[in-house]
Computed example of a mutant assay.
Amino acid sequence: MGSTGIDSLPSFSPGFKELSAPQGSERRHLTRINNHTMYLEILDGKLHRAPISDDPQMWYRHLGDVKSSVLFLCSRPHDLFKDFADKYPSAEVIGIDLSPIQPATVPPNCRFVVDDINEQWQYPDNKFDLIHIRAMAGSVPDWVVFHKIALRHLKPDGFVEQVELSGQAMSDDGTLPQDSALVQWWELFKAMGQKMGNTFAAGEVACESINAAGFIHIHKEKIKVPIGPWAKDKKLKEWGYWNLCFLLDGFDGFALRGMTTVLGWPIEKVQLYLAQLRKELKDPTIHSYLYL
């Protein structure tokens, strides 16, 4: 997380848009709910970790103040925008998305803007108290440049917060074979990112990029999120369930177009790979996890 006095924690770029296969509105809404619910579970029901609170003695600023302004740059978590606007009714909450799929009903202090964050920002400098970035892997060509722009648009004591779920599956007990489809997934998306010019390692480079952009008071947090309900701990088991639902619901459309159009795989090879990936994701003997 970063402040202009930051902690660390994305929108769709044209390159990301090319990878997004069409989905029905019902499935799209379910994916959003799974995504939002999973993050709420992992973050202890909190919408953010930036130190903003109703207790001014504990934190630098509280967003209940009139004229506070928040910008969300996220991959379709419209429920997050709305929940944040409900929690801070005095704050102006702006959500940006490249796709015009905004909900019809939103709180009066919340508005959605169809825009591309890689183009010139249509906001004055020193406007925002908080810029919250979430699930933007593969969307930004240069994260240092992006965070320099974000810094310019923050108020002097504002915060940037970036939350990213890594695509690199890991295991601590040797149950994830190095030749598995889950391990190959990360290598494939690194190759896609190189060809597109947009890294998928947004979480991995977030802290470094925020620091290089000129922020101070940087805080980094890494959380292990199981893939599937294999963990013994009740809380981790629940996280793993939501993570598995999120991955199973979203990876087909995302991977299919990217692997065929960017990497040039034939459709039959992609389908065989995705079938193996599904099998591994559901295998309780593979104790894999992703970092948030």
Rank of each mutant, 00 (worst) to 15 (best):
D173V: 00
E18F: 08
D252S: 11
I227T: 02
M259C: 05
E280S: 01
D65G: 11
L98Y: 01
A137I: 01
S180G: 02
N126L: 15
D172K: 03
E187F: 14
A231T: 00
S53M: 02
Q102S: 09
Q184N: 04
R49L: 13
V270D: 15
D116N: 15
T31Y: 05
E164F: 03
H219W: 08
D97I: 08
M170W: 08
H29L: 13
R76Q: 14
Y241M: 15
V270C: 12
I218H: 13
A50T: 02
T105C: 13
L244A: 07
W143M: 06
K282Y: 03
D44W: 01
P100H: 02
K235S: 09
I94G: 00
I101V: 14
V262E: 03
P284S: 05
D7L: 15
G240R: 01
Y123A: 05
V270K: 00
T285W: 08
K222C: 09
G240V: 07
S53C: 07
G158T: 06
G2R: 09
P89Y: 03
Y39C: 04
L151P: 08
G228Y: 07
L244Q: 13
P22H: 01
W59R: 09
W143A: 02
R49P: 06
L277F: 10
K279Y: 06
F84G: 06
Q102G: 03
D252G: 07
P124K: 14
K232G: 07
F215I: 00
D54G: 15
F251R: 03
L30G: 03
F254W: 09
E164S: 03
S139A: 15
L43V: 02
L272T: 09
P108F: 10
Q184T: 12
M58E: 14
L165W: 10
V145K: 11
L188I: 08
D83G: 03
V93A: 00
C207P: 09
G24R: 05
D115M: 10
S99L: 11
T37F: 09
K155I: 12
S69R: 15
F16D: 15
M196I: 11
L43H: 04
P100I: 10
P141H: 05
R152F: 07
K234W: 10
D116T: 02
A104S: 14
I216T: 13
K67D: 02
A212I: 12
Q194F: 09
K87R: 14
P229L: 02
F12K: 11
